[in-house]
Write a protein that binds this DNA or RNA. Structure first.
Lengths: 209, 209
DNA sequence: GTCTATAAATGGATAGAC
DNA sequence: GTCTATCCATTTATAGAC
């Protein structure tokens, strides 16, 4: 239950090797399909060593999820977005977000967390807090800011943020999660984001326009 | 690989008992956490009998998914929706859809399919075809119809349909999937749907309005 | 800390009687 | 078709030497 290693262990160390191997294997095959033997083998470490650093398979899994969530791509865009006109800011947020959720890593992680939710409820909270929650909070601030500047006629910022991310995911996210379509090209993603922003901006256009 | 029993076995029969038990257990605990022993026990059937009807655990799983998908709530609404004004039709579709995806059964099924996608790719396709694909197709026809009637300025019906369902899911669906929020009340769902429809209708309002 | 070897349990699938 | 009993592979976790 307790965490034995730091969220991001120093590169090259045994824990780092192990978490690296675990990340790859889990994301590729899913949680329960990966044995501790396989992890130990891939990490070039004995199983006993593995258990010396991570008390159980569940703990290794949680540590891996936390580590993957810790390095989000979304972190660096918010200051820029705030300074742009609404539509441009939304496009920047949208592009970054869509590229992220369409990445194999994010898809695999999401699939796996959902697959494990029922057996490890704490995991869902940890995942949400270290990933989506942060992004949502920032986006909400953006919406609030745009409402104050009079660029968007938003009354319920929570709702608007939900809606925007909903538009960005749409069925594309589902089809990617189900492995029913290839990752769209960047050009396709861009058109998709533009369409979402257009709809959103029209829907929240201030009255006098 | 081959299906041994009909998609919906006659009620009361052994296969029906088994699929019922499997459905409950799988949706509650997830695929790999449920043993064939547990299914047999819950179904009041010996394990050998179980294997006489379903060749393997995977096959039982696929049969269960197909059965759950076969009885969708979405089936009966389309004719009504087509006859209504755009906004009302969208609200009808939206309410039905949102109630469905917020149901414990749909959530559990979706979680499980995602958790198994990597190990059983055929499953994802089967799930999509027997569930979401049908709904999407119908909704697309609705959009096309409304565009023809001039009620909505839609040029790309696929895109618009994606967007509408995206708005209906939004973060609510994610939080429900992660078990991070209780099922919203029907009143909350209705307000949520109304907001989605409002945004959508504004965004696709014909020019002369 | 790290390894080899192994314990202990679980789970998927089957044999053979009725 | 159904049951009881069992096989065999796999997997988590640990014991004990270095």
């Amino acid at each position: 239950m307790t965490t034995l290693v730091a969220p991001t262990p120093e590169a090259g160390s045994k824990p780092a090797q192990i978490m690296d191997a675990a990340g790859t294997l889990f994301l590729e095959h899913g949680y329960s399909a990966v044995s501790m033997d396989a992890v130990a083998k891939k990490a070039n470490v004995s199983k006993a060593t593995l258990y010396a650093h991570f008390g159980s398979k569940e703990e290794l899994f949680r540590a891996m999820v936390a580590c993957e969530c810790a390095n989000s791509v979304m972190a660096g865009i918010w200051d820029d977005a705030m300074r742009l006109p609404a539509a441009d800011g939304l496009r920047l947020i949208g592009r970054t977000f869509v590229r992220f959720i369409a990445s194999p890593k994010a898809l695999g992680l999401y699939r796996m967390v959902l697959g494990e939710v029922l057996r490890q409820p704490q995991l869902a909270q940890a995942f949400y807090d270290s990933g989506p929650a942060e992004t949502f909070q920032r986006a909400r601030q953006f919406m609030s800011h745009m409402a104050e500047r009079g660029e968007l006629a938003i009354t319920d910022c929570d709702l608007a943020t939900h809606q925007f991310f909903g538009l960005l995911k749409a069925n594309m996210h589902m089809k990617l999660l189900l492995c029913l379509s290839e990752r769209p090209s960047d050009a396709d993603l861009e058109r998709f984001v533009d369409a979402a922003v257009d709809l959103f901006v029209k829907g929240y256009a201030p009255a006098g326009r």
